[in-house]
Design a protein around this nucleic acid. Structure first.
Lengths: 191, 191, 191, 191
DNA sequence: CATGAATGAGCGTTCATTCAT
DNA sequence: AATGAATGAACGCTCATTCAT
């Protein structure tokens, strides 16, 4: 049973680092300290293992998304929260994050793949989250007037970009969180 | 000679859509209307074909980067220019862009791979471009006071995120360019 | 103990339908409502299970062969008896019969295999049975003059063919027994 | 190209002797003096190779069936012809015959498999052939009165049984043809 | 008796690549 | 410039079998 866990952990790391097609079941088994057939004893196949890991990662992501406080003093706090949440997620679960953000494009082309569905739900959730707090903030005068939908997309792009920098360890700056939040505050909040 | 071109075009599209490991030389040859050995006649191997396409794409990218006007009325104009450049690049060369932004992670792990080198140079170029205009803008009072390095990273993240949205056709908003530029303006420019 | 019986029954059916190599121990265990290792608890291995079933089937066959009445009014009655016996056997034990008549050829090639031995004994028994009653019948004038050995072979071929038709449910005629017996009578019995 | 032929010949022999599941592609390639992947270069897969050989064998069989003379002096000559044809077929193409008569039962269970279709057509052809000449023979008084359909089935069973004996080299009598024809003559022809 | 976990060996198949033509 | 034939290596996966419990 420990070996099953080792397989999952190892597969997650390797899939994230080398992609689905670039990772062989033999490599997974070896680095997990198991034999190849054991993977097929615990999972229906390589695809099923991949899907399981992806779904687990998405589930954890959705949990964190759901855990964001609903009522805050200001709307901007909600923006700040979702940015922080993402940067924490990538710090705590780097492999899972990498897997989600760089899932082999081939898998995304297939609209039936479980990944496509999760991806769509994920975007929808964030967009509605951002759209809502932007709308409220603009109406209350907390935020400047701005196109809500576009701005939501821009914020997602920014978050996505920051997550990727962390995931690929490209930003040598240890923590850009403060600056990023500050960047958004200037852009959004009325002064 | 036409077939060589067809091979390159097809390979570029397939590598971008399915990744390096997910694309077989047989598939490339078939979709290009050629036979498999022809690929090896024109290129040393699958790796060489991939590298060639990647370098060509990077070269085109660098050309556009070099073509950005050096002296502008304001420093923000330079920011605007580099944003626009990227969005145009992805529109005009979608496959090449997709290839660059989602190059199989396996290839990036190898520091000797040509891709890693290009990636590093690319980041360096953009960072120095942004750092310079941010520094000048701050000194001249055009921009607010802000941490230069962090802000450069944030801008890169934003651009990267926007490019990805376009590449994966995720932003149903046809053109977020205006909004994105506006978003940055509020954040950077002194009012 | 019930499970052991279920394993035997299931294995017999599957071996008959799919052949030895075409049937996996996993499939047997599942369809028998047991787990795979249980097969190896009750039998030394897949081969042993197969051999056991085959020998049991052969044993049952030999019992019926031995039960044929030795003294009959006419010699043709003996011919009729052996034909009927075979058709009853296939009706009552279809899987066992199928297993015997279509035992995977691979097993027959090995002269050491238990199946080869049983097969040889079986043929010998039937041939001597037929040879004897043909010889007596010809001598007594009940049968025409005919080559005894050849005719025995022909009768075996006919029986074998009829059994196969029943086993594979090919003869849409429900019962060809009467006609078959009649067919032989005309050919053998002096008129 | 010679290797392709060798693969076909070898595969035919091995499939006939060991069954489909009992024969590995590696064994085929080795005994054919080729490498394993070559099989997959020439055929879509193991199944396709098997199907090709089976269809070729059936085709040859149908050719011989079609070549049987349509008009003969007596109806019994037609019976004799079809018996002889089968015994010649098994002598000239032993592997192909063995393959046809002992095609792995697993393949027959699938009604979509090409083998099932050919098997059905084959039976239909022979049955109509026999039914016709029996009907005519009975009407003209050449044959005794007898149930036509049953007798056709019996003749098929007999032929099938004889062919199997030859295929498995069980009949140590070199040629039972004469005796078999004689056996049938007594049973069918009016005296 | 019975099972969940695990394995070495082998399976059919695809891979990038080569070579003679 | 281009191809049909061929290959060594590796792939994902299933096999019969074992073992600790």
């Amino acid at each position: 049973m420990k070996k099953k866990y080792a397989i999952i952990k190892t597969a997650c790391r390797l899939f994230a680092d080398q992609g689905f097609e670039g990772t062989s079941t033999l490599q997974i088994s070896r680095e997990a300290g198991a034999t190849e057939p054991l993977i097929f004893y615990h999972f229906a196949g390589k695809d099923a293992l991949f899907t399981f890991i992806l779904e687990t990662s998405f589930a954890e992501y959705f949990i964190r998304l759901d855990a964001l406080p609903e009522s805050t003093a200001t709307q901007f706090e909600k923006i700040e929260n979702i940015i922080s949440m993402h940067l924490e997620f990538v710090k705590e679960m780097p492999h899972e994050t990498k897997l989600i953000v760089s899932t082999c494009p081939a898998k995304l082309k297939d609209p039936d793949h479980i990944c496509a569905d999760n991806f769509a739900r994920l975007r929808e959730r964030i967009i509605s989250y951002l759209t809502e707090c932007l709308s409220i903030g603009i109406k209350s005068g907390e935020f400047r007037k701005m196109p809500v939908s576009d701005t939501a997309n821009i914020l997602i792009a920014l978050i996505n970009g920051l997550v990727r920098q962390k995931v690929h360890k490209l930003s040598n700056v240890c923590d850009v969180r403060e600056s990023a939040v500050s960047f958004c505050r200037f852009s959004l909040v009325n002064s």
